[in-house]
């Protein structure tokens, strides 16, 4: 098992929601020997098992209201949130993982600002620029 897990979240068919998977794939093609890459459409309860035993986890997702071009935030396990759909947020996933597996790894979200999320829309030009900036930032971060 590799010490760092990178999870890219999103639906390619919904415009800028593809940001997570696109960045993940780009990173996965490069040389990050300590990283394992996991692409998901939504976070689900079984992903709590993927977190166990890691040193660090990075969730990459697109955001509608996040400051441009991206934000990087450290997150902790949620304790009382009520999931509103079949899917979980990163903090909810960490909360489930902590109950099931004990201590959770140091965890972060990289949220890249998107502009359009309609079904069938392509990646917007603005999102493409945000993707490049986020990619340049996260490469050295993953190596540290």
């Amino acid at each position: 098992m590799k010490p760092i897990l990178v999870i890219g979240i999103g639906n390619e068919s919904r415009g800028d929601d593809a940001l997570g998977p696109l960045l993940l794939r780009r990173l996965a093609e490069e040389d990050f020997p300590d990283c394992e890459f996991l692409e998901v459409y939504q976070l689900q309860i079984e992903h709590a098992l993927d977190l166990a035993g890691r040193e660090k986890v990075l969730f990459i997702d697109a955001g509608m209201d996040t400051p441009a071009p991206y934000t990087l935030n450290r997150i902790d396990a949620g304790t009382s949130a009520t999931p509103c759909t079949h899917a979980l947020s990163p903090t909810e996933l960490l909360g489930v993982g902590r109950q099931i597996n004990g201590a959770m790894p140091e965890s972060f979200t990289l949220c890249i600002r998107g502009e359009q999320f309609g079904l069938g829309l392509p990646l917007s030009e603005t999102a493409r620029q945000h993707l490049e900036i986020a990619c340049a930032f996260i490469r050295p971060w993953l190596l540290n």
Partner: peptide, 16 residues
């Protein structure tokens, strides 16, 4: 606040 999967995992870890 507890009526969720995190609450189930805390109260019924084997079931979760």
């Amino acid at each position: 606040a507890k009526r969720n999967i995190v609450g189930v995992a805390a109260a019924y870890p084997d079931i979760a």
